[in-house]
Design a protein around this nucleic acid. Structure first.
Lengths: 339, 339
DNA sequence: CATCCTTTCCAAAACGTTTCGGAAGCTCGT
DNA sequence: ACGAGCTTCCGAAACGTTTTGGAAAGGATG
C-alpha cells in the first residue's frame, strides 16, 4: 500500500506538500501539484481514510440502525426501501454507510451509542425502534449525538425526525370506508410502542368523530404489525363483532393475515369485509384481492433522512422535522356496503 | 470523549498498562486490571476503533457491494434478503458492514477496489454484478483483495464464491413442465452477463435433451430480469410461437410481466400457458395465480458468504466455493397440458 | 539597499491506539 | 548474598494523515 511518505520520497518533496497538493490547497505551485498528482496516479495512491479520520475526527460515515434487518423483515421491504433512499442520498453527498443491525433476540452487548462512539460515525439514522427502547433514549437524550429518527417523534438541536402524516393517512383511509357506506369499522393496529400506531389510531378516531360515529375501543385490535397478528385480529373481529363490515389495518402485512382468516371462515374481501391497509408493500398490488391501502414513500423518507442528517452535520440551518404526505391507493379490497 | 490517556491519568498508570489491561493481557495484575476496568466503565470509555485500526491494520469491517440497492430493487427483495443474511452472520462474528452501493447511472468515480483500499475494509462481498464488470475484474484479478462473490464464478486464494446449483434448479423446473406433458417449452432468460443465466439455460437444455426434445434457440427470450422484459418476451412468444404451452422464466419478476402480457391478450395461466419462475420472491406466493417457482435461499447465501469471507480473513482453511441447493415450489401457475 | 509582501515549501506536533523491548522489584534456591 | 526467573509495569516508537507556525527565496517598493 503506497502511502503519502512514498509519494514524498518519489516526488522529492515533504509529506506536507503532498498532502496540501492533493487536497487542493493554494500554497503549492501548480506545476508541482500537477507533478505530484501524476506520480500519485501512477503509484495508485489512495489516501488512508482511517489515518485521515484519526486527525480530522470526521469519518464521512453515517451509521444506519434498522431493527428490521432480519430474515422475517424481507417480506415487507419497508426497511429495504428506506435503506435504498438513505444510500442513494448518502452516495450523492459522498458519505458512506455503516450498517448496524439490531438483533432483537440476543440483547446487544453494545448499545447503539457505544457503537457510534467506537466507530466514530459522524451521525446516525435510526428506524424501526420502539418508542421506549432504552438504547434509543440513551442516544437521544444522554448523548447529544447527531441523529435523525424515522417515525419516532423527537426533536432537538442534534435530533431530527422524518415521518409521514399518519393521522391524515388514517383519516383518509377511514373516510374512504365511510364514503362507501360502512359504519361499523374496526381497526387492526400495530402495537403501543410505535408512534405511528398512536397517530393512526388518532386518525381513525377523528374520522369517526367527524362522521358522528361514537368511538368504540372494543373495535381496536393489536396485531403487532405481524401477519399472524392480523390473522388473529380478524378472527376476533368476526367472532366478537359480526356486525363489523370494514377494517382499517395499520399495515398491509397484517391484512395478508386478515385475508387468510377471512378465507378460513369461508368469507371473502371485499364482499364480507372491506379492508384498507397501510404501507402499499409490493405484495399489495398483486395479492388477491389487490389491497386498497395508504402508500407511504419509504424510499423518499430514507432519502430525506440522509439529507437532513448531512445538513445537520454540516451545520446548515434547516428544520429538524420533515413530514411527508401519504396517499390513498384504491384497489379492490374495499367495496360499497351492500344491503 | 474519554481516551486511554485520561484513564491512565485517572488510574495513575501508563497507557500501556491500560491498553493491556483492557485487552486482557496476562502481564497485568488482576487487581489493577479490575481497578482499571471499573474506572473505564465509570468514565464511559470506549476504545476508538479508528485509532486502533490505524495500528492494527484491521478494521473488522467488511464491505458489501450490491448493485441492486436502488429504488427499483425493492420489488424483488433478493438483494435485501442477501444483505440480511450477511448482516446476521457478520454481527455474530463481530464484524461491521460498510455498505457500498453501486450507482449504475452515473459511473462511479471510484472503483470498488479504491473504495475498499481507502476505507480499509478487511474484505468484501459482491453481489449483483455483471460478469464482465470492469471493476469486478479489477478487484478480483489485479488486486488480491479478499472477497467473496455471489453468483459469479471465480475462485482463488483470496476469492470465494457462493451460489446455488442453477443448472439443477433449471432442470427440475423444466422436468416439472415435462412431467405435466408439455413439449413446446420456451424460456425467458435474464441476460448474457449473468452467470446464473448461462447455468439456467444449460439446465433447460439438459432437461430437454434428456427428454429427447431438440433444443430450439428461437424459443429463448432475454428479459433482462426486468418485469417489462418479461412482458415483452411473453408477447413475442405468443405471437411468434403460438404452439408453445409452457414457459420457464429465469426470474419471478419477469413472470409478473409475462402474466400481464397473457392477460392483455385475453389468456390466463396456467390454462393457456404453464409458467415456472425462479427465486420465489415474496409476491410469488400471493399473486394470481400463485407462482410455481424455484426457491433459492438468498438469506442463507448471504449468511454463508459472510462466514466464508471471515473464514478467509482469519486464515481458516476452508473450501472457496459454496453451492446451495434450490427447491421446486409447486403452486398454481403450472398445470397438466390439456388436450 | 533595506523593507515588506508573496509565493512556495517544510519540520514537527497531533490524533488514540498497540506493541516492542526492556526494567524494576520479588521470590527462591543455593 | 547472589543470580535466575517471575510478575508487573512502563517509555517510546509506530500507524498515515492533517495542520500549525514558520522559513527561505524572490519580487516589488520606497
Amino acid at each position: 500500500m503506497t502511502t503519502i511518505k512514498d509519494l514524498a520520497k518519489a516526488a522529492g518533496v515533504s509529506i506536507t506538500t503532498i498532502s496540501r497538493a492533493l487536497n487542493g490547497y493554494s500554497d503549492v505551485n501548480e506545476k508541482t501539484r500537477k507533478r505530484i498528482q501524476t506520480i500519485a496516479d501512477q503509484m495508485g495512491y489512495r489516501p488512508n481514510a482511517v489515518a485521515r479520520s484519526l486527525v480530522t475526527k470526521k469519518t464521512r460515515t453515517i451509521g444506519v440502525i434498522l431493527s428490521e434487518i432480519n430474515r422475517e423483515g424481507a417480506k415487507d421491504s419497508l426497511a429495504f426501501e428506506t435503506l435504498c433512499g438513505i444510500n442513494d442520498r448518502a452516495v450523492e453527498l459522498d458519505y458512506d454507510i455503516l450498517l448496524f443491525s439490531t438483533n432483537p433476540k440476543k440483547q446487544l452487548s453494545k448499545s447503539y451509542a457505544d457503537l457510534c462512539k467506537e466507530r466514530n460515525v459522524d451521525g446516525a439514522i435510526l428506524s424501526g425502534l420502539r418508542l421506549h427502547d432504552p438504547y434509543l433514549e440513551e442516544v437521544v437524550h444522554k448523548t447529544n449525538f447527531p441523529c435523525v429518527l424515522i417515525d419516532i417523534p423527537a426533536e432537538s438541536r442534534n435530533v431530527g425526525h422524518v415521518t409521514t402524516d399518519n393521522v391524515r393517512g388514517a383519516v383518509s383511509a377511514v373516510n374512504h370506508l365511510l364514503g362507501l357506506g360502512h359504519r361499523r369499522i374496526a381497526m387492526i393496529n400495530g402495537h403501543d410502542e410505535a408512534a405511528v400506531s398512536q397517530d393512526r389510531l388518532e386518525g381513525y378516531r377523528q374520522a369517526l368523530e367527524t362522521a358522528g360515529i361514537p368511538f368504540d375501543p372494543k373495535l381496536i385490535y393489536n396485531g403487532g404489525f405481524r401477519e399472524e397478528g392480523g390473522f388473529e385480529a380478524m378472527y376476533g373481529i368476526l367472532y366478537q363483532h359480526p356486525d363489523v363490515t370494514a377494517v382499517f389495518s395499520a399495515s398491509d402485512l397484517m391484512v395478508l393475515g386478515a385475508l387468510r382468516a377471512l378465507e378460513r371462515l369461508g368469507h371473502r374481501a371485499p364482499e364480507r369485509m372491506s379492508i384498507v391497509g397501510y404501507d402499499d408493500i409490493a405484495i399489495a398490488a398483486h395479492c388477491s384481492p389487490p389491497l386498497t391501502t395508504i402508500r407511504q414513500d419509504r424510499y423518499e423518507m430514507g432519502y430525506q433522512a440522509a439529507q437532513l442528517l448531512v445538513d445537520m452535520l454540516e451545520n446548515r440551518d434547516v428544520g429538524r422535522k420533515i413530514t411527508l404526505q401519504s396517499e390513498l391507493i384504491v384497489r379492490q379490497s374495499t367495496a360499497p356496503l351492500s344491503g
